[in-house]
Design a protein around this nucleic acid. Structure first.
Length: 458
RNA sequence: GUGGUUGUAGCUCAGCUGGUUAGAGCGCCGGAUUGUGGUUCCGGAGGUCGCCGGUUCGAACCCGGUCUUCCACCCCA
């Protein structure tokens, strides 16, 4: 009995057309990364659990796919734990490996492990799949690709400026116009928290603020109050709830608001430097926008925070994000290595390009010529011609078996092969070929050189 | 993790308040046309109605569970 095959929740198969489109995005991103001086590395799909666990907060830990140990893994577990059914305590004993959750933490691990071979500042990019045990939704999968570029070993703000340009360059190349690069700085958020006396509640505070455009001012205020932030404190940051104007106006407002916070003022100065320079250099198709509500869940960011949103016409939230982390390698024992990086969400970019019909120039690797198979003698003659064509990098093939001509032509038709070469006994005898143009329906007898010429003009 | 939603042929979907052998279009295969495709005409194959269990004389339809789909929350690319 044949069981119906299926794939796990949140995973996908990719057809030849889809792969071609995905490769188009990949190669575009890759080319821009390399233009900006980044070099590729790769890390394993799974890491030791200890490397990943605890780096993404409680929520993140829950979403990490754990890999069961091999062998009789339950033998080593205390009976007491098993009887109590304490999954959280049992998990680390029966699972010592886990699928990577993002590319940044494995990269930090890589930097620490290879610190003696690396030339700093180290600029690497990485395009590999990551896995999250999330509930799938539109643009949310359990297996998806991230394309990351990071620089570690430099605190320079010029790199932060370059990343905004890099985003702009990639989306311009993909003809995806109207993206918004949102910019914020963790030090500004910390400064705000300091001003309202909620320094210890920075995470709760930023998570609440992040939801402003979704649940509105009232919702955010309510959430903050429920997290124990006082009403008077919240009223101090009232201006942030209606934070409009040009980037320069926003910076000036923030400077005033945060004047009494040292950290906040540093954040404003960093933001000012980045924004001033980007505005002086100009962007092609993206818009730079300061967004103080931008927090991003990952708590390892310490400075600049980026997020890219798709053009407003499509319903897709974030298609990329990143930021500065001053001490990510610290957890692995390498102190004082500042890093900054960005990430592209390949799968979401794909959905956006698809929705906006921006894939027109993507081409499948379709053969240009099909040789019809009329029998072994004729096929042998065709194979010699194929060797010639292939040595000239012309995509070509022989129909693998001697079936009805109708079927072979239909095959060429369905695959969109533009030329069919027919070699029967008379062609073998006369040392020539009959080539048929499938679009025009015309055909002629000619030599191999003419075939190469005809096909090459495509 | 919480709440809701979806599942019928390879694909897109019909199928009335539970009632005989479950349908269509597209696709597929064959023929008209044994060395000439895309059009047309004719014929054909293909479904234990997601899976397991229950209610009923009788279930694609009702009930429970489970998996899957999509959505909201959480979180995030």
């Amino acid at each position: 009995m044949a069981q119906k095959p299926s794939i796990p929740k949140g995973t996908r198969d990719f057809s030849p057309t889809e792969v071609a489109k995905r490769n188009y995005i990949f190669s575009t991103v890759k080319a821009v990364f390399e233009t900006y001086g980044f070099q590729p590395i790769e890390t394993p799909s799974f890491e030791n659990s200890a490397t990943l666990m605890g780096k993404y907060g409680e929520e993140g830990d829950r979403l990490i796919f754990k890999i069961l140990n091999s062998g009789d893994y339950l033998k080593k577990v205390d009976d007491a734990l098993l009887i109590a059914k304490e999954s959280l305590k049992i998990t680390p004993r029966i699972s010592e490996k886990a699928l990577r959750y993002d590319l940044t933490v494995p990269f930090a691990r890589y930097v620490v492990q290879h610190q003696n071979e690396i030339v700093f500042p180290f600029k690497r990019y990485q395009m590999q799949p990551v896995w999250r045990a999330d509930r799938p939704q539109k643009g949310r999968f359990r297996e998806f690709y991230q394309c990351d570029a990071d620089v570690v070993g430099s605190k320079g703000l010029w790199q932060e400026i370059e990343f905004v340009q890099l985003y702009d360059a990639v989306f311009t190349k993909l003809k995806l116009e109207g993206t918004t690069v949102k910019l914020n700085n963790r030090k500004i958020l910390a400064g705000i928290a300091e001003i309202i006396g909620a320094k210890e509640k920075l995470i709760d505070f930023t998570v609440a603020l992040d939801k402003l455009d979704k649940i509105g001012e009232e919702g955010v205020v309510n959430e903050m109050i429920s997290k124990g932030i006082s009403k008077e404190a919240i009223s101090k940051i009232q201006p942030l709830f209606n934070f409009t104007g040009t980037n320069q106006q926003k910076i000036n407002q923030l400077a005033t608001l945060l004047a009494s916070s040292e950290e906040g003022t540093t954040g404003v100065e960093e933001l000012r430097f980045v924004v001033d320079n980007i505005e002086a250099l100009g962007l092609q198709t993206a818009t730079l926008s300061i967004d103080v509500t931008l927090a991003r869940g990952l708590n390892y960011y310490t400075g600049a925070i980026y997020e890219v949103s798709a053009p407003k016409t499509v319903q897709m939230s974030s298609i990329g994000g990143g930021g500065r982390y001053d001490d990510l390698t610290g957890i692995f024992g390498l102190k004082n290595v500042s890093g900054v990086g960005i990430s592209f969400g390949l799968d979401r970019i794909y959905l956006v390009l698809e929705e906006l019909n921006l894939f027109d120039e993507v081409e499948l690797p379709t053969p240009k010529v099909l040789f019809v198979n009329f029998g072994d003698k004729e096929a042998a003659y065709c194979m010699k011609a194929l060797q010639k064509l292939r040595s000239k990098n012309i995509k070509s093939e022989l129909y693998p078996s001697n079936v009805k001509l109708k079927k072979q032509l239909n095959y060429a038709n369905q695959r969109g092969i533009p030329f069919v070469v027919m070699v029967g006994s008379s062609e073998v005898e006369n040392k020539n070929y009959t080539i048929k143009n499938m679009q025009l329906g015309t055909q002629e007898v000619c030599g191999l050189e003419e075939i190469i010429k005809m096909v090459s003009t495509l």
